[in-house]
């Protein structure tokens, strides 16, 4: 399946062709760009006229060249021999809701101020240890297992985080497992002790900052409504100073009020952060911060503007990586993983402070998705697990002809459930952004490869 797209920089336009079934990427000229768009049935009226105006010899020549990269019958037969192993139902990763409480009350929080619409709860040491035992007992053949400390704000329950990390290390060693930890924090409680601990123990740390001061303060408010921007920014800088080249992400959220989010990335880059991610908010359509359909074209343009900023700063002191522009075609995951996606509900589960098991943090407390409890010693709900395990790109009809299917893996099950009512559906707003981000990532991949 071929896909043609263009990229605009400094007043010039470049054309690319991506073959998603083979994972091949080409620079293309304008005639090829038009011919591939014709194959995709995506020519605009203006492009149809451009194609008609091209000299017939040029079109003939380009078509012959294009035919040379089209999938042959034997290549197709070889591809169709692929046997998808399906999702594995041995558990690999847990999202540990160490605390359902928060010192911020962000307006767009899907967790309703960190409490997930329930009473404030802190996970006990006993429950944390039971969760680790559950992970190891259910991890089967897997050697590499993971725990993500999540909230609410996990640092509000720092003592239990510390004891869980210590217990997990001992249990992993005893069972010949490699256990890695990650954490998502709002950075309010970062100090020397927590910074040193997270730097030592966490494989990745995600720190929530939204970018520009006014953007951040408009939605990320302290419980007492005071500004937290300076505290968070300074704490994040202290952490990054200690962190060096190890993995972290300064992660923001953009909403309907800041679809010019490249400016937020620019501010974060100016502040000295190099590993940055900005995610689109996902909210009910009637929410004032929800992204509206008419804003999508503007958002897609903004990703291109961000890519130009990325190229401007590439190789300078202000270089940055952007999570959604990371792609590694030559050393990427195998097709099995690309079809599996995140593994929510099958190999990745969320454990709430009281030990309840849910398919992932986005399903926490959701009616009909409670899978059991790590404290009761019984097996968890395998029926729900198999329902999630059966959902992958190959069963989503909307993904069949999408060139991004092997990178987005069919999208987020929780978004599909909350906004389309069914985990086997896709969430169309995310689809458009995922396609644009892939195109942009491919362009940057080509540019970086050229520079090497």
């Amino acid at each position: 399946m071929l896909h043609a797209f263009s990229f605009h920089r400094n007043g010039e336009t470049e054309y690319f062709v991506f073959d998603c079934e083979k994972g091949s990427l080409y620079y293309a000229d304008f005639p090829i760009f038009l011919l591939v768009k014709q194959l995709e049935n995506k020519l605009t009226e203006e492009e149809k006229q451009s194609l008609n105006r091209l000299p017939s010899e040029t079109v003939k020549d380009a078509r012959e060249e294009l035919n040379s990269i089209l999938e042959t019958e034997s290549e197709k037969a070889e591809r169709e021999k692929f046997e998808y192993k399906g999702k594995n139902t041995t558990v690999k990763a847990l999202c540990l809701h160490i605390c359902h409480d928060c010192n911020l009350c962000c307006e767009y929080c899907f967790a309703s101020g960190g409490t997930y619409k329930t009473a404030r709860q802190y996970m006990s040491e006993k429950t944390a240890k039971a969760a680790i035992d559950f992970l190891i007992a259910n991890s089967g053949f897997r050697k590499n297992i993971e725990i993500d400390f999540f909230g609410g704000e996990p640092l509000l329950n720092f003592d239990v985080v510390k004891s869980a990390v210590d217990y997990g290390k001992k249990q992993a060693k005893a069972h010949n497992k490699v256990l890695t930890y990650t954490m998502t924090t709002n950075a309010v409680l970062l100090d020397k002790e927590t910074i040193d601990f997270l730097n030592e123990e966490m494989d990745n740390v995600v720190i929530s900052v939204d970018g520009r001061r006014d953007v951040h303060e408009r939605v990320r408010k302290a419980v007492n409504n005071e500004s937290t921007y300076d505290v968070i920014l300074n704490n994040a800088k202290e952490f990054v100073k200690v962190r060096g080249s190890k993995r972290y992400y300064i992660r923001g959220t953009f909403t309907a009020l800041n679809t010019d989010f490249a400016e937020d990335v620019k501010v974060l880059s100016d502040e000295g952060f190099h590993q940055i991610s900005i995610e689109p908010v996902v909210l009910p359509k009637d929410h004032k911060l929800a992204i509206r359909d008419e804003q999508i074209p503007q958002i897609l343009d903004e990703y291109e503007r961000l890519a130009n900023l990325y190229l401007d700063r590439f190789g300078t002191e202000k270089w940055f990586s952007f999570f959604h522009f990371l792609i590694d075609l030559e050393n990427g995951p195998c097709l099995h993983k690309r079809l599996n996606g995140c593994g929510a509900g099958s190999e990745y589960l969320a454990i709430l402070p009281n030990g309840d098991i849910y398919p992932c943090h986005q399903f926490a407390g959701e009616d009909g998705f409670l899978m059991g409890n790590v404290l009761d010693g019984r097996d968890f709900d395998r029926e729900i697990q198999s329902r999630f395990a059966s959902v992958n790109v190959t069963v989503k009809s909307e993904c069949k002809d999408c060139f991004a299917k092997y990178t987005c893996s069919g999208g987020c099950a929780a978004n599909a459930y909350h906004y389309e009512g069914d985990i086997t559906k896709v969430y169309p707003t995310s689809c458009e952004m995922a396609r644009k981000r892939l195109e942009t990532a491919l362009v940057l991949y080509a540019k970086e490869k050229d520079k090497k």
Binding site: V17, G23, K92, N144, G332, C334, L335
Partner: peptide, 24 residues
């Protein structure tokens, strides 16, 4: 080729599936 220049080719790996890579 005159109209196309390959950047990378045939990078999708259909082997693998060991299940050890990370699970959002």
């Amino acid at each position: 080729m005159k109209h196309l220049k390959a950047i990378v080719k045939d990078t999708i790996r259909r082997d693998g599936g060991c299940g050890e890579c990370q699970s959002c």
